[in-house]
Write a protein that binds this DNA or RNA. Structure first.
Length: 253
DNA sequence: TGGGCATGCGCAA
DNA sequence: TGCGCCTGCCCAT
């Protein structure tokens, strides 16, 4: 930040957006749930342009030292400073949005557990109105922003709630546990730059080799055949188009 | 080499 | 509810 950036779209699909911010400075990055808002331009809001990025299922950022190697053909956006070059590949969305479009995107999102200003009360009220399974509700970004399939599986495992429990049948204590677990796990993910849901103590007992693999996720039930805590079989089923996971012992129906 | 799959989401029917 | 889109990786052949 603070230096003019060279922004380009080697793939061509984001050329229009890239040209609008090419040569300007990056002022801030404002994450909200799974959405990223990059603020380019002058310090004052007027004259700023906002680049919206959503990684979707396949999107990925890679960073290398400048000058970087020539980009692959699939690079949607390249942002280069004299020191670093960042390539973005495969995002669902990568384009300049105006304030109205940003408002529309934000209006579709519930509270984000990673944001200090998030209000869990809104999530609780939203869940009380829904008869859908809690596992489905946690993936609904209108209810709560930023939770994906891994964190859904892991948070419900940690609090011992089965994903099929109707959202409006949770009691307040269970909800508070789910919220605080998500806050803790998501912050841990940011801090560790990987998905890590297992406590240090448990990781040391059952997952020692993995602990030393930087960037490798460490989880209890997601994509596991057996529960990493008790060894029971992990149940896996399709829940609204996504795989859900639960330990038959730790998460009684 | 080709199929299947994946931390997602919007749209048509 | 099902499909299409976005890309890379792993595994079977």
């Amino acid at each position: 930040m603070g230096v003019p950036l060279h922004v380009s779209s080697p793939q061509g699909r984001a050329e229009g957006s890239a040209s609008l911010v090419d040569g300007s400075e990056l002022r801030a990055i404002d994450p909200y749930g799974k959405h990223l808002f990059y603020r380019f331009g002058p310090k004052e809001a007027q004259g700023q342009r906002t680049l919206h990025v959503h990684l979707g299922l396949f999107g990925k950022f890679t960073r290398s030292k400048s000058p970087a190697l020539p980009p692959k053909e699939t690079v949607r956006l390249r942002i280069a400073s004299p020191k670093w070059t960042v390539d973005l590949v495969g995002p669902t969305d990568c384009r300049i949005v105006d304030p109205d479009e940003e408002f529309t995107i934000r209006a579709r999102l519930g509270p984000d557990p990673l944001r200090p200003d998030a209000d869990p009360e809104l999530v609780w009220k939203s869940l009380q109105r829904r008869r859908i399974p809690i596992g489905e509700a946690l993936l609904d970004q209108k209810v709560i922003a930023g939770v994906g399939n891994v964190y859904r599986a892991e948070a419900l495992f940690i609090v011992g709630v089965h994903p099929n429990r109707p959202a409006n049948q949770l009691d307040r204590y269970e909800f508070d546990q789910i919220w605080s677990t998500l806050v803790r796990l998501l912050n841990l993910g940011v801090q560790d730059k990987r998905i890590l849901t297992v406590s240090d103590d448990e990781l040391a007992t059952f997952d020692r080799p993995r602990r030393r693999i930087p960037g490798k996720e460490a989880v209890y039930v997601y994509k596991k055949g057996h529960c990493m805590r008790c060894g029971s079989a992990i149940e896996r089923w399709d829940m609204a188009g996504r795989w859900a996971y639960a330990c038959q012992t730790c998460q009684p129906k």
